[in-house]
Design a protein around this nucleic acid. Sequence first.
DNA 1: TCATTAAATTGTT
DNA 2: AACAATTTAATGA
Length: 227
Amino acid sequence: MASRAKAELRELAFWADMLTDDEAERARRGVSERHFAAGSYICHRGDKLDHWTGVVSGLVKIGAISATGKAITFAGIGAGGWLGEGSVLKDEPRKYDLVALRNTRLAMMSRPTFMWLFDHSVGFNKFLVTQLNERMGQFIATIEHDRLHDPTARVARNIAWLFNPVLYPGVGQHIDITQEELAMLAGLSRQIVGRSLRTLEEAQLLKVERAGLTVKDIERLSTYEGD
DNA sequence: TCATTAAATTGTT
DNA sequence: AACAATTTAATGA
């Protein structure tokens, strides 16, 4: 049977099941919770935030300001997503900005705890490898994404991020997200996002609801390139 | 349970 | 960006 620590940890992190009871207890002690209000910065590029960070609830944007002054979004992270393993592993400052797009609860694991799990836990390393691999795939896709000027394609790609079954095992067909939040993620205006969503709905890729949407065809959505 | 009001979300110019 | 229309949530009888 599972330990109490593991049950507690599972509330914050789905990968708790991949740890032994002993490891879970150690992990639980090294994780604390923090809250960020909508619109606030969790960290700026260059900060030395040496915590591995999980989104318990809410929505976080990973991005940066380019040399030309344009805001670029690398990825959106929804509830269940974990980020920052690169900065923690290499003990480097963050190379990107983190912004809470809505009120967000974060689980933050201290670097010593992270390193201990990295050294001792097979389950944790398995999780890390799949996580890094999936990130890499998403990153490759993002490079292409930047060349996509069709706003509908950008919206589609941004939605697909939030439905990645490897990164977010719990997510079903539906998520709660407003068109305004999607606009901030994709770097588009709210009305363009609204129009794009209707286009995607007409193409039978998803169903638009109030303050949310349901995906009908995640495969075609993630590869959508416009008309 | 229903009616009223406030707040949030989306559509339109 | 501002305004209007619509839907949901909260309140209290």
